[in-house]
Each structure stands twice: as structure tokens, then as C-alpha cells.
Write a protein that binds this DNA or RNA. Structure first.
Lengths: 348, 348
DNA sequence: TGCCAAATTGACAGCGTTGTCATTCGCTTG
DNA sequence: CAAGCGAATGACAACGCTGTCAATTTGGCA
């Protein structure tokens, strides 16, 4: 039923090693021979067996995605993007949700290498921004790509896909300012996420540039969750001099803010503007639909995966660089402002 | 660095075959020997190499999850549940999103077997309810579990985890009836999903039992999406004699209904009650929070995975049955009514 | 004590690939 | 036309494990 490399070799009238050379795109195979083999592969619907490859070869054909993110949409987008890249090159993806609080990732990483012989990993926040994890990955000799907020790329740009949160947050804030808002509240995401700092920076920068004094009262700590959005917004709106707009660090928090406003009988966007960040599907399913910044997670993931795969299959850094150039892999993304219905002119 | 079965054998002073026996829990190993080996395993942190196992053995150590569901929360819940079961037994999970419209699943299934030597699959709707897919899986000799709406289990109960949509829908409808609602609209999910039929049946049954005539005008076709919920609800609410409650086939549709109501300045739940189904996280993030039926997807997935794994590792059906009994695997789930804020007394 | 069946253990051959290294081929060159 | 050299090809071991079957040990019983 299922054909092996032997079948192909027999059919093509060559040795199995030559077949191996062809399917791995190695040099030193005469074009005529290559064609013979490829024909045989075609006819037999031959597909190399992954287990055998992993076992025999020095390199492996599986990569892992490491994440700890309550946002299902984010995770799914990542998975699908990576899966696309993997499929195109015959790789397999192991998904690995982990717990960033529990400090077991490093052990899990090691197990992943020894047990499943993973070749590379895609790291998402917060792991991608945790030094001990990065160190471990390097120690294990894994190829890796970190999806990070721009600030966290430091001297490791080659291994990073950056999301420029500050630039996007700047745009968002500017959008609010242009609508006459002067008192703009900011709902922070979790401290441990670099992204929330980047977003805050962009917010501050836009205010400063517009000559608006930054009021610390308007910046409230929190985490990337609906509930945090509810309480943070309440906190802001109960102040003596409440803001006319709220910048929530992600869509979930923005949904929370919307909820709080609703509770307090505040009309959106007539009395209060609210913006989110990320363009989660549900930012389109709230009332009113959320103004937000579109973060192309699927695209980001695809690039990240392409990057690891290029590394995994190349021997030298130069070779990797060349492959990357060819593939047109983007390494920096700026989420784009998406104006919907939750923002409008300042009431004052 | 990484230890192999040889290292363990050397350390324990036995042959590798004996080590193999121990780690596979095979009989015919003297307790003393077993202990020696287990100690060595412990000391060396030995973990069998998956690629080698897959290559050498007749059975494999990976299963796949096949799905095509736009609901990220559903998918993530499934993945996590299965992953848990897999981890506990040293299995690996391959996720396989596919396209139910394109008819390529069967080929993909075959590739999964030949290429990655998958031992079993967990099928979710709509694949779990598509005969051609089930046939292919059987033909390939795969162990499988289908997660299905009760109606679709027919003579294949042993391979099914059932969700009793009808029973849950009955409960939901009854809840509405008890609040005095007599005209209850029903927003159907996609025709191709058995679940939507089950839910509709439960709805009808509850009405009949309460002596309420079923009005076909109140049953509107649609699909499991937000937009469908919006348009379906609009359609209902624009009728001359609009319903006082709407039963949406899932939470997303319910959110859409909420949105439509908002558009038409209808107060929820004062003027209109709305219920969803599934208890997606976002059913808690709408205003008002949705009354729905809690579907324990994570639990369902765990049971499904446990079921395939038991099959995969057992030789005989009897053995499988025994293993299942031990594990206390539940095979039928009834989503439970969860009353929140979107339902109330009928205004009339 | 001796014998035998059953229980326990081990030797060895794969599984389907890749890596290493030796061999052969096809040309160029003198 | 033969030598010589790099390119193309192949033989074979190895990867870490399981399956098969043979060898050894154990314990019960006469």
C-alpha cells in the first residue's frame, strides 16, 4: 500500500541513496536521474516517512509552538499560520500550551527535544520575552523565532518577529486626539507583557506631541482580560473628572470597558469613545463595533514559521539569510488603525 | 546527554528488550527486575524516543484531531482536553484543521497515516457526522472517536461521544416557557450540522409538551455565525407578531441577536429574552450576559481522547471495554442550562 | 533429586530513512 | 588514447526502538 524509498528506487532504477538525494534537494544528481526519480515519486505517490527521517537524520521535521495565551483567537491564528508554512515544506507542528506562571517550560522544552526531537520552536509572549526561556532554548541548540513586542528584540533581531506596539498605539491615540479628546484613559495589560509597555509608550508619545499633559490618574494598571477591562473602566469613569475616551490595551479589555459603560448608562460613542487593540473577531461583535488596531496574527505566524524552517534546513547563517530574502519574510509588523463605531468626537 | 534504552539496560544490568518490556508495561517481568529497570529509568531521566517507537512498532504514538470550526474557543477547548489525555500517556497530538467544503479530508487522512503514522483520530463535527469520512477512517484501520450530536451515533455508539442537544434545548425552551413566553423564535444553525437539528427537536418538544402550537414563521434558517444571528433576529423582530424570546442555536448567533435588538432599540431582557448555546467565553462578555447551555468541551475532549488511546493500546475490543470502564469515561453529555441576564419574564 | 512446563530473559532482525565513505562514471587534457 | 580528476552514484552502517523466537531460569511435583 504505502510506498517506501525502496519502491521508488526500484522503480527509478537507482539506489535509495539517490532517491534520498533527490527528495532532499541535494546537489550532485544528474538532471536526467533527478527526473527519473521524480517521476517515480509521482507515480507511487511517495511521501517520505517522518518517523524514519526524524530517527535517521541529524535534523528533524517537527517544530513546536509554545504559548500561554487565554485569547483563543490569537492562538488559533498562530496555529493556522504556522501550519500553513509547515505543510508547504513537509514539517509537522506540535502545539505546546504551557503555564508561564509555573516555571516548568524549561523542562518541557527539554522533553520536547529529547522525546520528540523537535528541531525548532516558535515562542510567543510571554515566553518569547522571558530571558530564562530564551537561554534554555539556545542551550538546547534549538532554532527558534520569538514573536515579540518591538522593545524586546534587543540584540536578537535575527530571531525575532517584531510587532511595533508603540507605533500602533501612537496612531490610535492620535485618532482620538484628532476627534478632540484631551482626557484619554489608558487601561494597561499585564505588567509582564512587554506589549503593554509599548502600547503605553505610544500613547504617551502621541499625547506629548499634541501638547497634552500626561495625567497619571488616567493610566490604570490591569491585565489583558474582560474583567480587568470592566473594573479599570469603572475606576476611570467614577473619577471626578472622567476621561472622554478610553484606550484599552486589547479588545477583550475594550469589551469590558463597553460593558462597564453600559452598566453606568453611558452612551458609546456619544459620551465616551473606546478603542481596543488586536482586531479579535469579537471586536466586530460588540455593540457598537470596536475601533481597534488590526494585528495580522496569521501573517505574523506564517513569517515566524518560515523563519524557523529556513534556519532548520540551512547549515550556515548566510544560507539562512539568503533563504529569508527569497521568501520575502517580513520581520516587523505595525498593527493598523481600524476605525469602526466605538469612537467619535469628544463631547466636550 | 539524552539517554537511550541502551543506557538504561546497561545501568540496570539487563537487556534492552527487558527495558522495553518494562516501559511498555508488558507482563512476564519479575517484580525485582522491573524495579531495577524503573530505578535506572528514573536516574537517567529516560524517555523513550517517539520517532523510534513509531518506526519500529506496529502501533504508533500519535493521534490527530480533525476539525473545521470557526469557533476558536471550541477548538482550543478540544485541543487542551485532548492534550491532557495525551500527555498523561506519552502520546503526541497532531492538529489538523481541514475544510469540510472541499472534500479533501479523505486524502489528508490517508497522508496522515502514511506520512506520520497516526494511530487514531478524534473527529469533530461536521466530519464526525459525514459518512464518507467515517468510511475512510475505518478503511484506513484507524482507531477513532466521533464527537457527535446524539442523533448521529446510530449503531456506532462504541466510537462516539454524544452530546445530547435535544435534551439541553428542551431545558432551555422550558426555561423560557416558565417565564411566560409563548412566542419563541428559533434561529437555526447550519443545515449540515446534526446539532442544529437536535436543538430544534428539543425546542419543538418543549413547546408541544406545554401545549404551544409550533409556528413555522418563528423558525428561521441560518448558520452558526454572528451575522446570521443578526439577520435572523431582524427577520423575526420585524414580523407583525414578533416573538418575545429568541432561542439562538449558539452563543455567537445569540450575540448577533443581541446586536440586532440593540439596533432596533429593543431592551433585553425587558422586552425580549435571548438565549444562546455552548457557553462560549464571550457569552459572559456581552451585555447583558447571555443565558445559555454549558457544553463542557474540555471534558468532552478529554473523554474522547481517553477513548481513542484505550483503543490504540489494546488488542481486543474486550480489553478496550475494560480499560474504558476503569477510566470512568463518560460517553454522553447533556449541556446544562445556565441562567444569566439575557432572559426574563415575558412582557405580555 | 531430577525432570518438565511455565515464566522470564535475551539475541537479533528489522522499521524507513540519512550520513559516511568507497566506487564508478564521464570528461578534459596532454 | 591513456591518465587523471571531479561529479555522480551506490553499499552499508546507524538511528532507538519493537517483534519474533530461541535460550535460560524458575518452581512445582514425582
Amino acid at each position: 500500500m504505502k510506498s517506501t524509498i525502496n519502491d521508488v528506487a526500484a522503480r527509478a532504477g537507482v539506489s535509495i541513496k539517490t532517491v534520498s538525494r533527490v527528495i532532499n534537494n541535494e546537489p550532485s544528481v544528474r538532471p536526467a536521474t533527478r527526473k527519473k526519480v521524480m517521476d517515480a515519486v509521482e507515480e507511487l505517490h511517495y511521501q517520505p516517512n517522518l518517523a524514519a527521517r526524524n530517527l535517521a537524520g541529524t535534523r528533524s521535521y517537527t517544530i513546536a509552538l509554545i504559548y500561554d495565551n487565554p485569547n483563543a483567537y490569537y492562538v488559533i491564528d498562530m496555529q493556522n499560520g504556522i501550519l500553513e508554512a509547515c505543510k508547504a515544506r513537509g514539517y509537522e507542528l506540535l502545539i505546546h500550551p504551557s503555564n508561564s506562571k509555573s516555571d516548568t517550560v524549561n523542562d518541557e522544552l527539554r522533553a520536547l527535544v529529547e522525546h520528540s526531537k523537535v528541531a525548532g520552536v516558535v515562542l510567543t509572549p510571554p515566553f518569547s520575552e522571558t530571558q530564562s526561556v530564551i537561554d534554555e532554548v539556545r542551550k538546547l541548540g534549538l532554532d527558534y523565532v520569538r514573536i515579540v513586542s518591538s522593545g524586546a528584540a534587543e540584540g536578537d533581531e535575527d530571531n525575532c518577529i517584531q510587532v511595533d506596539d508603540a507605533a500602533a498605539a501612537y496612531d490610535i491615540t492620535k485618532h482620538l486626539i484628532e476627534h478632540g479628546h484631551k482626557r484619554i484613559g489608558f487601561l494597561c495589560g499585564g505588567e509582564e507583557h512587554i506589549s503593554t509597555h509599548g502600547r503605553l509608550d505610544g500613547y504617551k508619545q502621541a499625547l506629548q506631541q499634541a501638547g497634552i499633559t500626561i495625567d497619571p490618574e488616567l493610566i490604570v494598571p490591569g491585565e489583558y482580560s474582560f474583567d480587568s477591562g470592566v473594573s479599570g473602566a469603572k475606576h476611570l469613569l467614577e473619577q471626578d473628572n472622567p476621561p472622554t475616551a478610553i484606550f484599552a490595551s486589547n479588545d477583550e479589555m475594550a469589551a469590558g470597558a463597553l460593558f462597564a459603560a453600559r452598566l453606568m448608562h453611558i452612551e458609546i460613542p456619544a459620551q465616551l469613545s473606546i478603542v481596543g487593540f488586536e482586531d479579535s473577531p469579537f471586536s466586530r461583535q460588540t455593540w457598537p463595533k470596536l475601533t481597534t488596531a488590526h494585528q495580522p496574527n496569521n501573517e505574523i505566524a506564517k513569517c515566524a514559521a518560515a523563519l524557523v524552517l529556513n534556519k532548520a534546513r540551512s547549515k550556515s547563517a548566510a544560507e539562512t539569510a539568503a533563504a529569508n530574502k527569497d521568501a520575502g519574510i517580513m520581520k516587523k509588523f505595525v498593527p493598523e488603525l481600524l476605525v469602526r463605531d466605538s469612537t467619535g468626537d469628544s463631547p466636550t
